[in-house]
Amino acid sequence: MIKRVTFRHKWLPYALLAPQLLITLIFFIWPASQALYQSVLQQDAFGLRTAFVGLDNFAYLFSDPIYLESFDVTIVFSVAVALLSLSFALMLAVMADRIIKGATTYKTLLIWPYAVAPAIAGVLWYFMFNPAVGINAWILRTVFGYDWNHTLNGTDALLLIVIAAAWKQISYNFLFFLAGLQAIPRSLIEAAAIDGASPFKRFWTIIFPLLSPTTFFLVVVNIVYAFFDTFGTIHATTRGGPAGATNTLVYKVFNDGFIGLDLGGSAAQSVVLMVIVVTLTVVQFRYIERRVEY
C-alpha cells in the first residue's frame, strides 16, 4: 500500500493532496451525502417547507408502477445490450484470433466506434431507422414487410436504443476478448487438435471455458455501461418514450429531478442507483482479486 522507502515532510503531502481532496469533497462527498439526506425528506409543492419522512420516499418508489416499469425496462435493456454486443464481439474476436493476414487492418476497422459518443451513436441509428427516410426502415418495409416505427411502437424504440448502445460497445468487447484469446496457451489447443478435436469442439470445450474470466469481467462492464452511460443515447433519440418504453432508471432520475422537480423522489432514485453501482463495483473488485490468483 505504501513504498518501502518514503520521504519525510511536514506539510508537503497535504499540499499535494489538497487539490484532489478539495474537488472530491465539494463535488463528490457533499452531493452524495445530500442525495442521502434529501432521500428521507419531502418538500411541498412550492419548495417552502420540508419534512422528515423516513423511508417513505423509498416505499413510495417501490410501489410506484412507473418506477417498477422503469426498473424492468432497464434490466431488459442492459441484458439485451450485453448479450448482443458480447456475442457479436466474441464471434469477431475468435475469427480475428485465427487469421494472420490482415489482422491489424481488421482491428483498426473494428475499434473506432469506441470513440463515438453514445449520443452520436444514438443519432446515427435513429436516422438509419427513421420510419420515413431511414435505410434500415426501408429495407424492413420492402424486403420483410415490417412497418418499423419507433415513435409509436415501444418494442421498436427499445430495439433501436439496444442496437445503438450495443454497436458502440462492440469495439471495447472485441479488444478485451482478443487479448483474452491470445493469452490462452497454444499448447492446449494444439494438444486438442492432435487428438482430433474439430475447431468447433475446441472452442466450446477449451477456449470458451478458459475465456470465462474475461467474459465475466465484460458482462459486469457492459451492464454498468448500459445502466449509466447510455443517457445520451436515449435523450438524443427516443426521450424515454413512447409511453415509457425506453425510460431507463438514469433517464428517469434526470426527468423527475430536472423536469418534474420532485427532489425527494429524485434523491431516493439516486440512492437506489448508488446502491446498484456500489454492488456492481464490489462484484467486479472481488472478481479481480480472484483473477490475480488465476
Binding site: F28, P31, A35, L273, M274, V277, T281
Partner: peptide
C-alpha cells in the same frame, strides 16, 4: 485521505446529478 478519494471510484456523475447541480 486514501479512502475519501477512492470512494469516488464508485459514484459516476449520473447517479448524483441533482445535488451536484446545486453545488
Amino acid at each position: 485521505c486514501f479512502w475519501l478519494i477512492f470512494i469516488t471510484l464508485m459514484l459516476p456523475v449520473e447517479v448524483r446529478i441533482l445535488p451536484t447541480y446545486e453545488v
